[in-house]
Simulated scan of single mutants.
Amino acid sequence: MKFDNPEDIIQLTPLWEGERFSNGRPKVSEDVLKRMRKITLEEAWGPLWNRGYTFQFEGDFKIIHPDKIMVGRAVTAVMVPKRPDLHETLLNYGHEQEGRKGFFNQWVIDSLVEDDVVVVDMFDKVHLGTYVGGNLSTAISTRTKRGGAVVWGGIRDNQQVVEIEDINIYYRGSDPTAITDVTMVGMNVPTRIGKAICLPGDIVLGTPSGVIFIPPHLAELTVVQAEKSQVRDIFGFIRLKEGVYSTAQIDTAWTLDMWQDFMNWFDNDPTAAEYRHLSWEKELAEAQKSDSSGSNHDVRL
């Protein structure tokens, strides 16, 4: 076996058609990452759930900075309890054949680049299972700039880690012991985090409620749908305060007249300026079709 094998990563992510890193990991654009930081957990969850991705969220974590949002591209790792023959074989292979330095967790952190998030299945081990402490968390900050880590296991040096402001870490528990008696059996492979699954290159959205893993081929679609929901809500709040529409009108299918009202507001009101990269052709076409047929179908995505 090989760690961080490009052929395996490409095979695991066939639906991604965009740019990739040299190891084959999908590289969702910086623009999408930036926009992802402005959406809520529920806005990200809906498009995934509706497409059959029902095991992407896990919320049973402690959080270093519970008031901060974390967004980045996943770099995954799978750890298992130590079995001496397997442990020595894989550790020696990494050192001798792949030129890696230090212990397994250092291999993963040494591979990080800007906007990465470490996602590691530590099989919920906390005592003697502290994947990062002060030093490695500092290294994550230096390499990722604003990324972090999701650890289904332990961390240490919390008093030091909490002082690192530009990253976030989701973890199961704290312990003063160092990591030991564990072996990494996969790097950038499918990784189970509680009841969720994460693949290399998934977009990790960490919120106060927990973490959701967004497949790269659905990342832009998820952001677009979230942004459309946000700007429609802004318009709805304004019109409700003005007494133009009732809550029933806002919360159900919009008529063609309402869509025309919205588009006029969208094109001219300064409040909508940051959303003007969005296209509404599909929604308008559906509204026109419904109007001409006399039916009224909701065209929310």
Rank of each mutant, 00 (worst) to 15 (best):
V80M: 11
V126E: 09
K195I: 12
C198G: 04
I214F: 10
I250G: 09
P81K: 15
Y53V: 06
P26N: 14
I179S: 06
N92L: 11
I64D: 05
R276F: 10
A77I: 09
T247A: 07
D67P: 00
V204F: 06
E7W: 10
R300Q: 03
T144L: 12
Q288S: 07
L278Q: 07
E286W: 07
T271Q: 01
M122T: 14
D202M: 05
E58W: 14
P176H: 14
L128V: 05
R100D: 01
G133S: 11
K125Q: 13
Y93S: 02
R73N: 04
H87P: 00
W254C: 07
G59H: 12
G94C: 14
A285T: 08
T271Y: 01
I214S: 09
R35D: 13
M263R: 15
G194Q: 08
G154V: 08
I214Y: 05
M1P: 03
V299W: 13
S293L: 14
R37Y: 12
G134M: 10
I39R: 06
L301C: 00
V118W: 01
Q288F: 02
N105C: 05
G94E: 15
P81W: 13
E7M: 07
Q225V: 01
D298C: 10
G201T: 01
E30T: 09
S293Y: 09
V71R: 13
V151G: 07
T191Y: 11
T89H: 03
Y170K: 08
G210S: 07
K241T: 08
S209W: 04
F237D: 15
M122S: 14
T138W: 02
K145C: 10
S229Y: 11
G194D: 08
K34C: 06
M263E: 12
T76L: 06
N92M: 10
A44T: 02
G18K: 08
F213L: 00
H277A: 12
V118T: 00
G148Y: 04
F61T: 01
P200E: 11
W280C: 06
T89R: 08
R300H: 03
E58P: 00
R25V: 15
D115L: 02
R35K: 15
T54I: 04
L301I: 00
I234K: 05
R37S: 15
S279P: 00
P47W: 04
D257G: 01
K62G: 06
